[in-house]
Deep mutational scan, measured.
Amino acid sequence: KHLIERYYHQLTEGCGNEACTNEFCASCPTFLRMDNNAAAIKALELYKINAKLCDPH
């Protein structure tokens, strides 16, 4: 559950690194913003595939 919350935060708030290159992070310049419901679904999907989590900045 904690990991899913981290994915959700990364998708909605980002890691804080303006030069982030993680396509699944709101801080990445090319990230496409999504609403909270879509972010919750995506967080579950990312958890299932063990996607990369950013280190908070």
Rank of each mutant, 00 (worst) to 15 (best):
K1L: 02
H2P: 06
L3A: 03
L3R: 08
I4A: 11
I4K: 15
I4R: 13
E5A: 06
E5W: 08
R6H: 11
R6P: 13
R6I: 05
Y7R: 00
Y7I: 04
Y7W: 05
Y8W: 05
Y8R: 14
Y8E: 11
H9T: 14
H9E: 06
Q10E: 01
Q10N: 06
L11F: 02
L11W: 00
L11V: 10
L11G: 01
T12Y: 08
T12L: 12
E13G: 09
E13P: 00
G14D: 00
G14C: 00
G14M: 00
C15L: 00
C15D: 01
G16N: 09
G16A: 10
E18L: 09
E18T: 13
A19T: 12
C20V: 00
C20G: 01
T21E: 14
N22M: 02
E23C: 08
F24T: 12
C25E: 01
C25Y: 01
C25F: 01
A26Q: 05
A26N: 09
S27V: 02
S27F: 03
C28D: 05
C28I: 03
C28P: 02
T30Y: 04
T30C: 12
T30M: 05
T30G: 14
F31Y: 09
L32A: 13
R33W: 03
R33D: 04
R33Y: 04
M34P: 10
M34R: 07
D35R: 07
D35E: 11
N36Q: 13
N36E: 13
N36A: 10
N36Y: 03
N37C: 05
A38H: 04
A38L: 14
A38Q: 07
A39E: 02
A39I: 08
A39Y: 04
A39L: 07
A40L: 08
A40H: 15
I41V: 13
I41E: 14
I41W: 04
I41C: 11
A43E: 00
A43M: 03
A43I: 00
A43P: 02
L44T: 15
L44I: 15
L44A: 15
L44Y: 15
L44E: 15
L44R: 15
L44N: 13
E45C: 03
E45A: 08
E45W: 03
E45I: 01
L46T: 03
L46W: 02
Y47Q: 11
Y47S: 15
Y47D: 15
K48H: 06
N50L: 06
N50D: 14
N50A: 13
A51R: 04
A51Y: 04
A51H: 06
K52R: 09
L53E: 09
L53K: 08
L53C: 06
L53H: 04
C54F: 02
D55C: 07
D55G: 12
D55E: 12
D55P: 11
P56V: 12
P56W: 10
P56K: 09
P56N: 07
H57F: 15
